[in-house]
Design a protein around this nucleic acid. Structure first.
Lengths: 195, 195, 195, 195
DNA sequence: TCGTAAGCGAGACGGTACGTCCGGTCTTTTC
DNA sequence: GAAAAGACCGGACGTACCGTCTCGCTTACGA
């Protein structure tokens, strides 16, 4: 039971796609701050009015691009070798141990910037951007709890928040990646959970 | 052995103060994004040229205001009752357990926004904004290590990063404050360190 | 013996009427410059495409409205009492002697504006708008020539041009109406023709 | 006793000149309707804000250009050979007898268009644009009256209105120039005045 | 003591991008 | 197959700030 849609030209999916693609490209090229709506319109070949008809702000476009999957981060696939410490370390390496790919870093900063100015898009955006990895991580930890290798005292989402939090913190402070850091972080978190 | 300074009117401290105060007020009123240099000039009664003579960007002004102490956060004084768990919980409460004062939240978001666009001011700014508390926290933890109540395996700064990181993460995601959260966080961190 | 018209919905006279009426109303409300095709479509309830199907431009709609009699100027009925001077004075009075009705003035200015930008519609428009009065005036003057009360030397259309010209000139310069002016004008024209 | 001018960079006469010159050129190139403020800004190298700071509308710029003498019409110098009929005929020839220079025609139409949309600029504009010739013509006619060759009954300005009026009328209706027309017009006006 | 040189407020300047509006076209469903 | 509805691209609109540039006016050394 969809909309009655009484007359009128339907929304062009071509325009939507073109806008989101152009946004993805421009984000990579010039970054969030220097990306302008005029440039998105020019690059996508979509009229500015059409953009403003469907999105309320620059951050809303970015959020939509993330939600629609036009902007994707390489999936931090979370391994499951049975050894939590090794798995966590492997998962952390790209983010804090080795150089994060610049486009991922730029995107994360872009979203952080978008978030600071607008509560609503921020929520949706973080949810979508980190949701999948959050859940994968929580599932992995829960499995350890179920098998008795971890205590069941603490809310696992708190542990996950700490991991994502430290990633974000090091991102905005532009901390240098370090393998030792990944190891220390792993020890700390697993140590806290094992209690 | 100061500058030769042959003649000329010296820099007016009145102008500096007026600019930093106006910046502090405007940050609270409209937030970082919507605060303009024109507005700072108008509110402070200082000419735009004078502002640009002494500061290179909006984020530089904010950074200076923090550094000069014109913008202050209520000092998260770190207690020392001898009970680390109790102390940590007490310290975390204002940030994640109870409502963070809006002006502090707005300021932290402002600095985060400033950081995303400009690497250098970001570093100085975070250093100054969190440096004192970071050091106090590290000192407190080191004391526990020295007295043998905590293991000496992990770099304490990693633990501190996690704490500041989760604070930042919950700030940008606008997470609701919760006393239970403060307790879980305390358990997790102390648990990890005690190992 | 009408059009073949195989199938299809016939042109709606309701639409035509609605467009022309809306044009008339909008001209009076906001003037020619600020009247938009969008507004005509909205007010008339007619689709923009339908408007563009039948009219090529804003001035074409106005011209059609004049031609179809939807927009009418109070007929400057040219009297014929046998006394040319009195008749001419009576005819001029509304235009330069007394206040011209604002809607007539606005319409004449609208057409002048339309004319300045588009040669073709301008010609048709002026022809239609002033044609009837021009001819009535020429006929009246010719009658005087035929009866010998006026000389036959000059082209009467020149005299008529002068009359319409001065009307237009005073319209665009927003000259104040004046009874004396009507009298002077009459004297001048009749004087010139009597020679 | 000029303005005190307390502080601030003074208005740049260079900008004013550049805007008015660009306006003059664009009027000749594309006409009043198709001339945009953006184009004036681009061609003159003056910021749009600066234009809007000093002029309220497109017609205001045109009016100013005329008033400042940046836009000039070749002076219809009014001859004085002692023979009014010959002089009048000579004066009329360029306007209605021979082809009016296109740039003058375009300019006059531009001003007419400007006038139809804005009362105030219209008044100032016509006054400046036609004022000099009006006065020269009136002076010439007055001389004839003084020497008794013309009657003193009618207001001379009415006669002048008729001449300018018929010029405007033929301009907006795009009437073809014609030498015969100039002759008929001369006869008519002089005939009316001689009475 | 007084010239002089830099700092200062004010605010105009050339730009860039904004978000809105309208012109003219295109594409649906409805009649 | 025309009409309504309304989304579409393009482009001008008038505004807001940016960072720079004069101005005329303080200051407070140092000659």
């Amino acid at each position: 039971m969809s909309e009655p849609n009484r007359g009128g030209r339907p929304r062009s999916s071509r325009s939507t796609d073109a806008v989101l693609s152009a946004t993805r490209d421009l984000l990579a090229e010039v970054g969030y701050e220097r990306m302008t709506i005029d440039a998105i319109a020019a690059k996508s070949g979509v009229g500015k009015m059409t953009i403003y008809r469907w999105w309320s702000s620059k951050s809303a476009i970015v959020a939509d691009a993330v939600i629609e999957g036009v902007i994707t981060i390489a999936p931090f696939s979370f391994p499951d070798t049975g050894d939590l410490r090794a798995d966590l370390h492997a998962w952390l390496m790209p983010a804090v141990g080795l150089a994060t790919p610049p486009e991922v870093a730029a995107l994360a900063l872009a979203m952080t910037a978008a978030t600071t100015g607008d509560v609503r898009t921020g929520e949706a955006l973080y949810e979508r951007f980190t949701g999948r990895d959050r859940q994968a991580l929580i599932d992995r930890l829960q499995k350890e709890v179920d098998s008795g290798r971890l205590g069941s005292d603490v809310d696992l989402s708190v542990a996950v928040d700490m991991l994502f939090g430290v990633l974000l913190y090091r991102l905005v402070t532009r901390a240098e990646p370090s393998e030792q850091y990944a190891r220390d972080l792993t020890d700390l978190v697993v140590g806290g959970l094992e209690t």
